[in-house]
C-alpha cells in the first residue's frame, strides 16, 4: 500500500492504523515516511509495507534456469533446425561457424588457454550447458530479445554445442539431454569464496 500518490500531494491511500498520524503531519512530508516505518517496526512484522506475492506471481518469477537444469521448459530442438536459426539470426556477429566477429567467439581450443589471446568459446570456457538456454532466451538476439520460442532455443543451444563437438549432428536437445551435457571446463574454475573480510 502506498501512502503518497505523488511527492507533493496529500496522502491518498493509507495504512489504516497510521491514518491519523499521516493526516496530522503530511505537511512535513519528507520526514513522515521514516517516522511511520520506525513506529511500525516494533508492532507489525511486515510493517504494512508491500503486498504479498500470489502463488501465480511467484511461479512466474521462479524461472531462473539453474546449472542442474532446474526450470528448463518442455520442448525439443535439433542441430539441423538450430543451424538454420543461427545462420539467420546469429552468424552476422558470431561468425559463420562460431568463430566470432563483432560478438564473442563460440568455439575455441582448450589446449590454447595458456597461450596469448585464447578464444574462449563454449567448449573452452562455459561450465554449464543449461546456462546457454537461459542466456540466449533472455538476451539474444540483441535487437529482438525474446524472439525464440522454447523449441527454437533448444535448437540453437544444440547447434552451438555441435559447433564445439559437444553434441552429434543428429542429436536432439530437450531439458533432459541438456541437463546431462557435461561441458569440458566444468572444473576449470577456482571460486574466490568464502569472501575475505
Amino acid at each position: 500500500m502506498s501512502i503518497f500518490k505523488s511527492k507533493d500531494s496529500v496522502a491518498v491511500t493509507v495504512v489504516p492504523n497510521v491514518l491519523s498520524l499521516v493526516l496530522l503531519c503530511f505537511s512535513l512530508s519528507v520526514f513522515i515516511p521514516v517516522a511511520i516505518a520506525t513506529e511500525l517496526s516494533a508492532s507489525e512484522k511486515n510493517q504494512g509495507l508491500g503486498r504479498s506475492l500470489s502463488s501465480a506471481e511467484i511461479d512466474a518469477l521462479d524461472t531462473h534456469i539453474f546449472l542442474d537444469g532446474t526450470n528448463l521448459p518442455a520442448g525439443q530442438g535439433s542441430v539441423a533446425a538450430g543451424r538454420e536459426l543461427y545462420s539467420q539470426h546469429c552468424s552476422a556477429c558470431h561468425g559463420h561457424a562460431g568463430e566470432g566477429g563483432s560478438a564473442l567467439e563460440l568455439v575455441g581450443d582448450r589446449a590454447l588457454l595458456t597461450t596469448p589471446y585464447p578464444d574462449k568459446g563454449i567448449g573452452v570456457y562455459w561450465p554449464y550447458a543449461p546456462t546457454l538456454f537461459q542466456y540466449i532466451k533472455r538476451a539474444m538476439p540483441p535487437e529482438h530479445p525474446g524472439l525464440f520460442d522454447n523449441n527454437e532455443l533448444y535448437s540453437l543451444v544444440g547447434f552451438v554445442l555441435y559447433l564445439s563437438d559437444l553434441l552429434p549432428e543428429a542429436g536432439v536437445v530437450n531439458r533432459t539431454t541438456l541437463a546431462n551435457v557435461e561441458l569440458p571446463n566444468k572444473d576449470g574454475f577456482v571460486d574466490q569464496l568464502p569472501i575475505p573480510k
Partner: peptide
C-alpha cells in the same frame, strides 16, 4: 519482487521503499 527462501514473498513499490529508513 522478493521471493525464494523467504517466509513472506513480497512486492515493494517505490513508495514502500521510500517509507523505510
Amino acid at each position: 519482487a522478493l521471493h525464494g527462501k523467504l517466509a513472506k514473498p513480497t512486492a515493494l513499490s517505490l513508495n514502500d521503499l521510500h517509507r523505510l529508513p
